[in-house]
Write a protein that binds this DNA or RNA. Structure first.
Lengths: 107, 107
DNA sequence: ATAATTACTTACTATAAGTAACTAACTTTT
DNA sequence: AAAAGTTAGTTACTTATAGTAAGTAATTAT
């Protein structure tokens, strides 16, 4: 008894987007490459989880990691084509949020 | 030091979509009203969490709960206008998944 | 009277995320 | 030369979230 079979590709995409922080990391990278410490401080994510997420996203071919052997070393994270193709999703989330959510949620 | 300030409305929408199962629940409801047991069995969600999610979504005005005092009682969950407006997001996730994910993920 | 159905809730366990201190490689300051 | 600072993490531990399985309430069927 399976009333509605869900496309496994859609389900996989949804479980990606449903991971805590993943969407925000991608959103930040849409404006260009970012360093670890920049991502860490711009959203409220902990280093432990950011490290985990970036590794996952790299393994999925969504994020690219570039090492610049400067001093101190600079490591930049950026979106691959696969990652950049997530932009329309972010755009729609933005549109929805501006239409349906109030500007001042607290107080 | 706040290198990138994120719009609080966008952040709220993103944290909604980042909740495990929330996206799939909404996706299922896009095809019409559904009962608790139907949602429970069509995705792999546990009753405990489904109950929690539906309550949250109802409180946020995304889902509507209708009681039909038949026998046994029928309770249907459906999307409000605010909930139905999430469809473009789902559409974009679907498009992305079909372009960038492989049909057979395992093996 | 007993069993079945739906829509949950409750108690308990397992997994994921947060916190804070630590490491490695290198450089600047003292 | 030793101590402190920087970036990019990792590790050990705590807290929060999700999964599991059994229980409840209302009603009908057997």
């Amino acid at each position: 008894m399976d009333p509605a079979i869900i496309c496994p590709r859609f389900e996989k995409a949804m479980s990606l987007m449903s991971q805590r922080w993943t969407g925000l990391v991608i959103y930040q990278l849409l404006t260009g490459p970012k360093r670890f410490c920049t991502l860490e401080s711009s959203m409220g994510i902990s280093g432990r989880v950011l490290s985990e997420r970036l590794k996952d996203l790299e393994n999925q071919g969504i994020v690219k990691r570039d090492v610049y052997p400067e001093t101190p070393v600079r490591i930049e994270y950026s979106l691959t084509d696969k990652g950049a193709a997530l932009q329309p999703i972010m755009k729609e989330i933005e549109t929805w949020s501006q239409t349906w959510l109030e500007p001042e949620p607290n107080q």
